[in-house]
Nucleic acid binder design. Structure first.
Lengths: 150, 150
DNA sequence: TTGACTTCATTGCAAATGCAACGAATATTG
DNA sequence: CAATATTCGTTGCATTTGCAATGAAGTCAA
């Protein structure tokens, strides 16, 4: 009771710490698909995010992606460069604002996505099935977390 | 309808893709606390995890931490080295099995944790409050994800 | 006891990351 | 219009990461 006073650590268990749990769960969830993308197609997660965004948003700048896809602009820029080198996307300078770089899928990139997307869709279905009735609860909570102003 | 066949991307929205959502939510959640730990105490997330584990598990080897805390052993090893350099933990070779390195908090490390833990506890409370009735749903789903065999 | 196998922690190396700085282009202000 | 400030994308640099390889220590079986 009269313990030093210092060194008396409060009760705390990492295993019940939500930031930790969420991080580990997210890693575990992403890993399976990420590994497939990497080994079968040579695509990293940042590259995958750029590709997806380009798939349903025609011409997009690096800045657009930075904002919508939760990645630093340098990360986006480098992912885009790798994708360009691999021939999956093309960069073009925007005529109206020559600071902007317009990114767009090449035919080869579209072909790649026609293979990647079905995998992702199946993966999502798998997750929802696995989670069963807890899925909605998860999604609602995430929505709340992502929606926070801050 | 008779579109090329290639280039016809299936419907898919990254913003509703659970692995992505979970990753972004986890990052957002961790960031606030991680920034505090970094700027105010010079502690990184891997270091923080090692410290927490040492706090309620006396003498622990690198391997123990690797298994329980979801980090690669090299990551654990380097985090431990940095913590040792900073004087927060001590390494000692296990007499019974001299391959093992026993890690333990120093008094300075305990003092540090007596500052860090209250922050974490308050942070957790904040999260639970912010999430309100959606917290349980989140926690159940994470439990399910983390509990999966594989 | 010896030799082959396994386990543990560290380290080397190439790649990825975050951040700040930069140059080029545009916007804004006086 | 000129001068200043801001935005955009890239790059340099130091740090971190993941993975494989290493060496030291222990285990097991013949």
């Amino acid at each position: 009771m009269s313990e030093k006073g210092r060194g008396t650590a409060p009760e705390f268990d990492l295993m019940h710490f939500t930031p930790y749990r969420l991080t580990v769960a997210a890693q575990k969830l992403s890993d399976g698909l990420a590994r497939q993308y990497r080994t079968r197609f040579g695509i990293s997660v940042p590259e995958w995010r750029v590709l997806v965004h380009l798939t349903h948003s025609g011409n997009v700048s690096v800045r657009d992606i930075e904002m919508r896809v939760a990645m630093e602009k340098s990360k986006v820029s480098r992912a885009a460069s790798r994708l360009e080198d691999a021939g999956y996307i093309a960069k073009r300078i925007n005529d109206k604002d020559r600071r902007l770089v317009q990114l767009a899928l090449t035919p080869k990139g579209e072909e790649l996505m026609s293979k990647l997307l079905p995998l992702a869709i199946a993966f999502q279905a798998e997750i929802e099935e696995k989670l069963g009735d807890t899925f909605k609860g998860l999604d609602d909570a995430i929505e709340k977390l992502l929606g926070e102003e801050q």
